[in-house]
Design a protein around this nucleic acid. Structure first.
Lengths: 347, 347
DNA sequence: ACGATTTCTAATATCGTTTTCAGACAACGT
DNA sequence: ACGTTGTCTGAAAACGATATTAGAAATCGT
């Protein structure tokens, strides 16, 4: 493993100064261009990123910090973001926070001096890191999640409230009155907003909300399983359930299968976030879908333009739309409670 | 955004030389330790990774190059690898190759000067990159996939051949004789080996293999869908199918659902790689499972020890075991063809 | 063909560390 | 008390690029 050649070696071989080679590398016109070019390929010269960033202050890297790559949504975000950096020439540092503010802080401490910008899906809404990044002067774009002072940050969100609402409206439309939800962590933006959307839709429909019908899960499969089991153990269980995220949906379906409840005869289900498997379940699952890869790609594009300074300083918030994909997991309620609710719309 | 403090600032404040501060940072005993420590926290000093790696030649980073993060297997690998770097102090560069050798070459050119080591799942078995990395003297561990000269590389593989074989054996055991496979790209290690395992098991059972029963897919959902459709269109379709990867399984199930074939009454199915959804499908899917996160974690551990030089120079190949998870997607064949095969074991 | 103007070039300081290399100082044995 | 260890320190030379500066060469107008 021979020592790799430096810019000086190239300059020597091409018979020019290092400055000239440097300028050539940066794309400026130079008289000895082809001699330099041939020296470069002959010596297999590759500029040292370390030296370059020491002098220039730019690292050519971007950090992408997410709670969990294993969640298909974030995997899609990574992919979307990556498709943009392939063009912009940046490379991506990826890190998992495991939904923990502390772990995230650690990671960001480590990463922040290595990157020119950051894409961050904050673990919680108490997350101090966006502020810290702002203080450190690191361009940051928030993905899918906000923080209180979020007015100050570029961010790419989705219409969580509206999405949850349309899920519940769909169930109301099918005649359901006893609609429960398995909410994610309400410390996080999607968890809070989806719960709000659910609640608002229920209340506007004039339904009184049994507090038992709201189970908080934590966005993991296990939370979904437990929440659903509790719901099914209720003396008067719901006829429909809105599950606030894809991982929890798996747990919910496992619980349902376990108990032997039939969908949609005994229970209607709407999930959040589509998945290739949703279509081949029996019955296929009705879900709220959103453009996942686009969310990542858009965030990366915003970050790149922010780093280039080709964009006004005022922060931009983009909110993407969700839409309901109707499949077969929703039907009319098991027993339509005519008379119990004077305004019931049952057949 | 004030300029960040340098080691010289710390030295000044602590009343020592930069050399002393540097030594303190590297963990050596130093008389003025606590003065330095307080200067550091007072100034919020963070050493510059660029300067550090320029001088030391170490970057503190590791590249992780996979064909597709969206594939749950690779997502799990990322997670496993990450769990190790959290301790070793390295940070991860992640990149997607999209199963393309060319894209991979591009990525590696870009990344190779930025990292101390590399975890690579080569796109194909013609992949020139492992050789190139070896030439460049970059410690490399191959994940899940090999290259011809692979005897020369550390690698963490699974027993693809044995896994495929046990899938087919399971189907044979249920009485099937007409067993097809949807193979992945045979350019890649898992694709080739799983196909070999299938073929060997079939041949050893004394069954003649109709060439129509081997469909090559390409490891994507679409390939699985097409392969299955072709299989079902055959004049004399199989009674069982072994699907060589998780993504393709989704396509296969979609095709099956589309045509209206019943599992396991009309067709038995075994997939490769487990997934949380496998259990809640109807019927639950029998699969070949393997320790995915461990594969990533182990690879990372091997890489770190290789980079530390705490390990003999001879390359190590680890092969992890697979095991069959029996669920309900396999049953006896639709029609047992007694008499057609003179050695038939049908009831 | 001349000076004025515009490229283009070479030399060099610089980025923030780590790493010699001596030298300073204390502790030690005899 | 003396040289001999041994530990700790500061000065200064790298590491490999970029940015600045001033000067050389090429281009231009008349």
């Amino acid at each position: 493993m021979a020592k790799s050649p430096t810019i000086a070696d190239v300059a020597g071989e091409a018979g020019v100064s290092v400055a000239t080679v440097s300028r050539h590398m940066r794309g400026q016109r130079v008289r000895a261009a082809e001699r330099i070019e041939s020296a470069i390929s002959h010596l297999r010269y590759r500029p040292s990123p370390a030296a370059r960033s020491l002098k220039s202050g730019k690292t050519g890297a971007i950090a992408l910090v997410v709670p969990d790559v294993t969640n298909p949504f974030f995997a899609a975000v990574v992919r979307g973001a990556e498709s943009i950096t392939a063009q912009s020439g940046h490379t991506i540092f990826l890190a998992n926070t495991d939904e923990s503010d502390d772990r995230e802080t650690e990671i960001i401490d480590n990463l922040s001096s290595r990157v020119d910008g950051m894409l961050l899906a904050p673990a919680s809404e108490n997350d101090p890191n966006p502020e810290r990044l702002a203080d450190a002067g690191i361009p940051t774009v928030l993905i899918d999640r906000e923080v209180p002072s979020s007015g100050g940050f570029d961010s790419v969100l989705i219409d969580n409230h509206g999405g949850a609402r349309s899920a519940v409206d769909h169930l109301l439309g099918a005649g359901h009155r006893r609609i429960a939800t398995i909410a994610g962590s309400v410390e996080s933006t999607p968890g809070r907003l989806r719960l709000d959307g659910y609640r608002d839709a229920i209340i506007e429909a004039g339904i009184e909300l049994p507090p038992d019908f709201v189970r908080e899960g934590g966005f993991k499969e296990h939370g979904g399983y437990q929440g659903m089991m509790q719901l099914l153990a209720l003396p008067d269980p719901p006829t429909a359930v809105f599950v606030a995220n894809n991982m929890m949906t798996i747990g919910v379906l496992r619980a349902i299968k376990h108990i032997g409840v039939r969908i949609p005869d005994d229970l209607s289900v709407v999930g959040f976030d589509d998945h290739p498997f949703s279509e081949i379940l029996d019955p296929p699952l009705t879900v709220i879908d959103r453009p996942m890869e686009q969310q990542g790609a858009l965030a990366m594009r915003m970050l790149v333009s922010r780093m280039n300074g080709t964009v006004p300083a005022t922060p931009r918030q983009v909110v993407l739309d969700t839409h309901l994909i109707e499949r077969a997991s929703c039907g009319p309620p098991r027993e339509t409670l005519i008379g119990l609710h004077p305004d019931g719309r049952g057949p």
